[in-house]
Amino acid sequence: MCDIIWCKKDFEGKPCNTINYLDPYCFWNWEGTINCAECGAVYYIHMIQGKMYRGPEDRPGEKPDTSPLYADKPLEGYRFYGAGIPDRTRPFECLPRHIYLGVPDMVKFSIRNRPVRGWRPQAPDGGIAGSYQFNWDLKRLSPDVYEEYQQKIKNGEVTEW
């Protein structure tokens, strides 16, 4: 065992088989208890310079000091628990927004409500050998977004800053 904890406790009638990842900067020098993201078993670990100096030792019934950020189950198609699932993983607070997508954000309007080409697919508009002109004919290429924009103008939602 090292800086992953592969939990093999019996859980709901079969081995838990969950890997709890102890991320390097947080746990490089660390002592305390941590729970398994799947079965909730609590382990005591003492890591010095990335090595398990003591543990993982079972600490049944104790309240864990912390949780992993990430855990997955290789035997079940890598089903995983990402950051911030209550009682399983610890939250990742330092994020750019209150939500976290991890996939492309389909944006049609900038924060001042003017059209920006941030969504897919886009209607083809190229000429010879992939050439493009120097304008974006929104009305012709994306009439629905054009309409939405006209509505925004009417509603006074389009601002300077």
Binding site: D3, Y21, D23, W28, Y78, A83, F92, Y100
Partner: peptide
């Protein structure tokens, strides 16, 4: 891991945690 097979998917925060934990191991 199927998610790590795709270049864009690898950049998700969860995948950084997993990759770097094992690399540091």
């Amino acid at each position: 891991d199927p998610i790590l097979k795709e270049m864009g998917g690898r950049n998700a925060l969860n995948m950084l945690v997993k990759t770097y934990t094992l690399t540091t191991r």
